[in-house]
Computed example of a mutant assay.
Amino acid sequence: MTQTTSPPTASRAWLVDLLLLGALWGASFLFMRIGAAEFGALPTAAVRVGIAMLCLLPLMFLRGQWPAFKQHWKPALGIGVLNSGLPFAFFAFGLLTLNSGLAAVINATVPMFGALVAWGWFKDRPDGSRILGLVIGFAGVAMLAGRTAGFHSGADEGAARWAIAACLAACICYAFSANLTRKYLSGVPVMATAAGSQVGATLALALPAAWLWPAQMPSVKAWLALVAVGTACTGLAYVLFFRLIERAGPARALTVTFLVPVFALFYGAVFLGERITQWMLVCALVIVCGVALSTGLVKLGRRRVAAG
């Protein structure tokens, strides 16, 4: 009797997307910190999604996915606000106070919030191991908030707590949007979903960004940073992200947040001279352990009592 198995390259193709996506999104914290310092939070997010939209819309038409977008434009635009517009603005605000590596460590809580959303929405009740993971993950975030390691010099405790709260709000947005994508956009072509989401985010942020546009024209360095984050870290990255959801499911797609802090800490240390403290690494380890348990990637074994 012959047994057929899927080719290893096909079954694991999503791992390449996962690694590349982690590298791109890790760099996004570096570029957003540079841009937000001169543009401000909302204009940074608006320019980012606007550039991504301009990159993705022509590709959507060239690939003949306009009819798919027309059919699903409402959920695509709405999810774009939740998956791009709001979280990008929240993280840009947080990066005015936090170092890029610390913001990326907080970003690692996304799968943990995703587990909570799945619990409350899809009635995916977690077992004891996953509940313990949620407790551990939130404890790690509280540990981060309790010290000023990873904050900009001169940042006071009040500003730091608001910055951490903004980053956590972004993580909650990501968790909801991944599950909404699973429910309303499953099977929709990747380019239609990616481009549509950036259109929705751009429309939502355009007027607030225009109102808060900086009085002084930002430098060429800041513009280049936002061009990079808009094209590579958003346009290309969201094609990979939605393709990853299709290939591997939302739970596996959200595990990219394990990789993002690794790349972000490296980029921040090399290009911005950010200091990586032992406390940040300890908190990151606690958060990652919590996320691994809360998403079911790691399960605590049960002891078996041998019958005597």
Rank of each mutant, 00 (worst) to 15 (best):
F88Q: 06
F88M: 12
A89L: 03
A89F: 00
A89V: 07
F90T: 00
A92Q: 03
F93L: 15
G94R: 01
L95I: 09
L96P: 02
T97V: 14
T97Y: 12
N99M: 12
S100F: 08
S100Q: 10
G101C: 09
L102T: 14
A103K: 01
A103Y: 01
A104K: 04
I106C: 09
N107C: 09
N107A: 13
N107H: 10
A108P: 06
A108K: 04
T109R: 04
T109D: 07
T109V: 15
T109Y: 02
V110D: 00
V110S: 13
V110R: 04
P111L: 08
P111A: 11
P111H: 11
M112P: 02
M112F: 09
F113E: 00
F113Y: 14
G114D: 04
G114R: 05
A115P: 03
A115L: 03
V117S: 03
V117K: 02
W119H: 04
G120P: 07
W121A: 10
W121L: 11
W121M: 10
F122H: 14
K123G: 12
D124L: 10
D124V: 10
R125I: 14
R125T: 15
P126Q: 09
P126E: 11
D127Q: 13
D127C: 04
G128F: 04
R130V: 06
R130M: 15
I131C: 12
I131K: 12
L132F: 10
G133K: 04
G133E: 11
L134P: 06
L134F: 09
